[in-house]
Amino acid sequence: MDLRIFTEPQQGATYDTLLSVAKATEELGFDAFFRSDHYLRMGSADGLPGPTDAWITLAGLARETKRIRLGTLMTAGTFRLPGVLAIQVAQVDQMSGGRVELGLGAGWFEEEHKAYGIPFPKEKFARLEEQLAIVTGLWATEVGQTFSYEGTHYQLTDSPALPKPAQAKVPVLIGGHGASRTPRLAAQYADEFNIPFASIEDSKRQFGRVRAAAEEAGRKADELVYSNALIACVGKDDAEVARRAAVIGRDVDELKANGLAGSPSEVVDKLSRYAEIGSQRVYLQILDLDDLDHLELISAQVQGQLG
């Protein structure tokens, strides 16, 4: 099972902090560094130092790292026009030497749109479907050919479909809990399906829906990677778990019920149960980005025990 580090910088983090976490992610042997795409803190605190942009951050990290994959869970479709997004991601992929992955979602947090003057359309899912068609269509267009698209929400005419990513195929991640439209979209466009903050039972049910949708779409279900995103709060003993939980303002029992919390052996056991229902990759949501000892513990005592 791959373990990836997943950060929520809108809760309060500078680029330098994110760089420190990304370098630790690489040095400690994790598979990837991912970040959310939000412009407003969730919760009552002031949110200092303020937001960082997801793709500007990843552009910087692309030049400062050498091995780890880099990506978003999830880029908000409401923030960027699809043609512009295709250019941004292709450029960052070139800057990284072909290590970028694009998680793309519809966008949902209305308050951040109001705070920064970003339109918040009602028909977000329909827009997302067109965005996926455009971004993947632009990348798939052969050099020297043009790409056109006539949709309800977006129209492109004779686009040169440049630049191209360094990778022959940038992996596309689609995720969510939706019972019908989300699996259908994943079956059509995704290389990976991710379900965030879900129980083992709910994950198994949703993976089954996506696998069925893939088969119905004429794909082999195993062509997709199936993954989870789960909060992590690991400690060498109960006191350390409690201390880390207190720093992020969460209850230990709640974290154990809904995430990956407890001793390394407890977390390994729970990860094994996710693996049994088909999860191949887990994004560890790390909320205290100053606690690099947390990453060292997970690397040494959790990651090494996973097959």
Rank of each mutant, 00 (worst) to 15 (best):
D31T: 14
E201A: 15
A76Y: 03
S96P: 00
W139A: 00
V84S: 06
T7F: 06
D37N: 08
R41P: 02
K124T: 14
K23E: 11
A126Q: 13
S265Q: 15
V268C: 13
Y274E: 06
G249S: 13
L138M: 08
P82D: 04
K122Y: 08
A13I: 03
A133C: 06
F125V: 15
A161E: 00
D158K: 09
G50T: 05
R4I: 12
H294N: 12
F147I: 05
V267F: 04
V210G: 03
G77F: 01
L3Q: 04
L128E: 03
T78F: 01
A115Q: 08
L173A: 04
T78A: 12
L61S: 03
D269T: 14
D2Q: 14
G307F: 09
L230D: 02
D16C: 06
T136L: 08
T75Y: 07
K169G: 04
A179V: 14
G71C: 09
D93A: 04
C233G: 08
I200Q: 11
E150T: 05
A187W: 02
G98Q: 10
G144E: 09
R99N: 05
D238T: 13
L85W: 00
T52F: 03
Q88C: 03
R67V: 10
I231Q: 03
P51N: 09
E276M: 13
Y149Q: 02
G71M: 07
G304C: 11
D37Y: 04
A62Y: 02
R80W: 12
V282Y: 01
R80Y: 14
S227N: 07
A190D: 05
P119N: 12
D93Q: 05
G249Q: 12
S299V: 09
N258V: 08
L138F: 02
A126W: 05
R181M: 15
T75F: 07
T157W: 04
A166W: 07
A76N: 10
D253S: 15
A212K: 15
W139D: 01
I277K: 11
S199C: 12
T14K: 11
S148H: 06
V100R: 00
I118F: 09
